[in-house]
Design a protein around this nucleic acid. Structure first.
Lengths: 230, 230
DNA sequence: CAGTGGTCTAGACCACGGT
DNA sequence: CCGTGGTCTAGACCACTGT
């Protein structure tokens, strides 16, 4: 009767959902009622239900009550780790290899993505990320020098641009686009694969306080997988 | 001095992190101390900090205190919606078109993924998801009939297999793999594109109470993007 | 306008895990 | 051991929104 944790209540309620005791689309009892049933404080029930709502199983509205969702939302999530960590967690040795470094005005596509003037020169870097000497990913990056001044002096042969940026300009925001793309001659050469091969790509723009810092596109060789659990 | 919400406190602390007032790797003051500073209850601070921990900015341990993470973890998340919803949200008309339906023993690859005996026959479905008559995705699906008996009688020309399964076998677990793959002749024909084109793929296995229900691979035509925000 | 969830509080006990 | 976060409680007020 007594020791009821918000977790145990959450699981209890989840069971009622999965077992069909409470049906999709229906309204659940109010927090007060559930609290009385479990013999605990309302705030404990509140926390349990907040969790289930965040999971996408139920929907809560003031006055309207808590409703079981018709179609539970499946929310996939995963950590975007550093490529260095990605490589090292496979037990390989990481080495970023800068194959191009120039300061030039960006192509229109990049300028638009970073919402910058096309005329402003940016730092352009192409990097091959090696895992024990094998190409693990190819990176095409543009950096807004004004937003990260120290970048020009960074030891980019030892630490990747990304890691440097994260350390120096942490807590930025960003958007991410996953897609597939046929390898062009440039990517194929960098990844030691063939033009036309299907590459997995991650395209990312990052800003900090409304100032765009960097745009980066990562190309992964055929066979690369991004895994997660629901 | 008074009205302090857990959200406002969360933002205040986030600002201290981004502004460098509290440095990566350092230990933050305890909850009691922060509560005193803001003049609010400890539980309010607790909730704020719990949120920041979930975001991946800080790390909390009993006795050890709350530490600012060296490398903030960027966590991407997005909802895996139904293809029907995906299509309809673009303003197109959705139509699932079943192009193959058979009950056969699965290839080894599928049997392994579903942890089933290769000899057991499964329902195999190939579906082209049309968005206003244009192919939006191609789906290759295997269903464990034992785990979803009613599937054989479902009106799959009107409702997609996925939607049927979600309605009948809700709240299952699953894993997801994103990747890229060159189109084979079969996918190319279904998607009205060319063999060799880079396709974005989502490979998913789903189970319910340790029983594998379905394995599905979705192929998206060139240009398809999966977007999210950090 | 009334009922539901959202939130805050002050206080208490506990579990973990560094020292 | 003992300080820190983790959690629960009982009660209160509030904000939103369906009727």
């Amino acid at each position: 009767m007594s020791r009821h944790s918000h977790q145990s209540i959450r699981e209890s309620i989840r069971r009622r959902l999965t077992s069909g005791e409470w049906l999709p689309g229906a309204l659940m009892p109010g927090e007060t009622e559930i609290a009385a049933e479990f013999g605990c404080a309302r705030s404990t029930v509140n926390r349990a239900l907040r969790g289930l709502a965040q999971e996408g199983l139920i929907e809560r509205k003031r006055r309207a009550g808590t409703r079981i969702l018709e179609l539970p939302v499946r929310r996939a999530h995963f950590d975007l780790s550093l490529i260095r960590q990605e490589v090292e967690s496979m037990g390989s040795t990481y080495l970023p290899q800068v194959v191009l470094r120039e300061i030039v005005p960006p192509p229109k596509r990049i300028a638009e993505r970073l919402k910058l003037e096309p005329s402003e020169p940016l730092l352009h870097l192409e990097t091959v990320h090696l895992a024990s000497s094998h190409p693990h990913a190819f990176e095409d990056r543009w950096v807004n020098i004004d937003a990260a001044p120290g970048i020009l002096d960074a030891p980019l042969d030892k630490i990747s641009v990304n890691e440097w940026l994260i350390r120096e300009v942490p807590y930025s925001s960003g958007d991410v686009i996953f897609a597939a793309q046929n390898a062009g001659p440039r990517e194929a050469k960098a990844l030691n694969t063939l033009p036309g091969d299907a590459l997995f790509t991650i395209d990312r723009a990052t800003w900090f306080n409304d100032v765009y810092v960097t745009a980066v596109k990562l190309f992964y060789p055929p066979g690369h997988e991004l895994r997660t659990t629901l």
